[in-house]
Every structure is written in C-alpha cells, then in structure tokens.
Amino acid sequence: MATTPKLTSAGPAVGPTGGTAAADVEVALESLSQWQLAWRRFKRHKMALMGLGIFGVMVGIAILGPIVMPYNPLDIPGSPVPGGTGPSLQHLFGTDSTGRDVFTMVLNGARISVAIGFFSMTIAGLTGVVVGAVSGFAGGLVDNVLMRLVDVLFAIPFLFVILVAARFFGQGSVVALILIFGLLSWPLIARLVRASFLSLREADFVEAARAVGVSNVRITFRHILPNALGPVIVAMTLLMASNIVLEAFVSYLGFGISEDQTSWGNALSNAQTALIFGNWWWAFFPGMAIALTVLSINFIGDGLRDALDPRARL
C-alpha cells in the first residue's frame, strides 16, 4: 500500500536556481486535447463538413427508419402500371411497375447500406487493429505468422469469395453480408496499424513508458494505439464507403440482399429493365443516393486525413 512519500511539498523548497522556470509566462490558455485540436482542423475543411452533414442525414434516416418512411417498404401503395408512374406529390420518386414507392425504397436502402457499411467497418476495424497491433508490437514469429495470413487473404480474389460466400451462407441476409465484408476487409487495416506500430514502438515515449514499468499490453493499447489511430480512422472511413459500393454491386448482380428487400443495389438491378421504357426515376434516385453517400464519406475521410495528421499544427 501507499507509504508516505519522502519527497513532499512540505519539505524544504527547491533552491532559487532550481525553482520556477523563468521562461514560463503564466498565460491562461485553454488546454485542448488532441481530439479538440483535430475537430478544430476538421471544421476548416468545408467539403468535409458538407459531407458530414449529408452523411448525418443518411444515418438519421437509417436510425429513424419507419418513422420517416411514407410507406412500409413491404407494402405496395400504388397500382401496378407497366413501367410504373413518374414522380408525383404522392410518390415523390415515382413507383415501379408493381406499384412500390421508389422514395420508400431509397430510404430503406439507406438503412441497409449504412448498416452494412458501418458494421462491416467496425468488424474490419477491430480485427485489423488487434491483429496489426499484436503483429507490430510483438514482432518476430508472431508477426511473421499473422502477416503471412494477411498475404494469403490479399491473394484471394476478393469479389469471387464474396459471391461464393454470399450464395453459400444465406442469400439476402444483411447480417451475413456484414460478416463477410467485415471479415474479408480487415487485412488492409491490419497492415496499416502494423506499419505505424513498427515505427512507434521505437519511439522515445514508449521506452520511457517501459522504464516506468508499464506492461506490454498496456503500452500496446494505451500508449501506442492512440498515436497510430489517425491513419486508421481515415482508412476505416474509406473502407466504409467502398463496402457500401460493394453491397450495391453484389446486390445488383443478384448475389447480395434478397430481392424482396429494397437495397440500392436491388433497386438499380430492377431499373435496368425499366430504363427501356424511359422510366429514369427507378435508376436515378437510388443511383444518386449511392453516389451522394459515397462522396460524402470520402469527403469526411479527406477532412479527417488533414485533421488527424499529427504534423499539422492548428
């Protein structure tokens, strides 16, 4: 237990030369954490702020879901008309030939896309960070084994595995897609984290932490990881965007979300036949939704890249 420290302020004061640092001027500056500084830099990036706004709306739609949807996504509110009906006040984005509301489809698609993007990113991020951190900090045999595993995963044709796996593990399930995307896209993150760790573990402050008696696990996750997080967060953001595109693509090919669920990819797939009749609203609105989401995420990533750059000063 705690013993009375020998050095206390009650003891004799340090001599004048050893006393207060003369150069230190008392300025009542507010103390900003790294995150506060990063936010300050992020805010100057106008496109990133806009991206954050648009993506915020998408996330809002995804969370609120049924509350903002004018119709139940499984309902058929309109009447079946070949080629569907164009945009109107009742159906903002028009309907498809069975009479489904395209606006509801787009909103529901946002739900699916955001869920897939976010959760697959989380899985990939956690796996990648843990594998990369252990690999980079431990080095030696552990590093070798883990990195060869990463090499193997990189060598497998990604799309092919996704198509096969999607068919195999339950066509159309959102959870299955999240797992597949998440478990296949972590190697990128792992490599990034490992690279940062390799340089950071030689840092003076890591040696100082070891000299204080901090355990390796604590050094890895408390001391090194926060310093390595910047590029990882950027990469995870971009990974989220690419997984959203991937979902649309796989669904478009008919290997993703099942037909009855209206994801953006499915909507585009339907639209392929519809365009023959000149019913542009089937493809336009879901397509715009994908483009807007991905673009806004990429802008956020750009802003984060600048904001989290440790060399950038205010």
Binding site: D204, F205, E207, A208, A209, N227, P310
Partner: peptide
C-alpha cells in the same frame, strides 16, 4: 530513468 530527449519522451496524446 530520466531520458535525454524531453521533446520526444512524453506521449503526445
């Protein structure tokens, strides 16, 4: 231990 490089021996975060 007291280290040589005070500029880099403290964790920036």
């Amino acid at each position: 231990m007291i280290f040589q490089e005070p500029m880099t021996s403290l964790n920036p975060v």
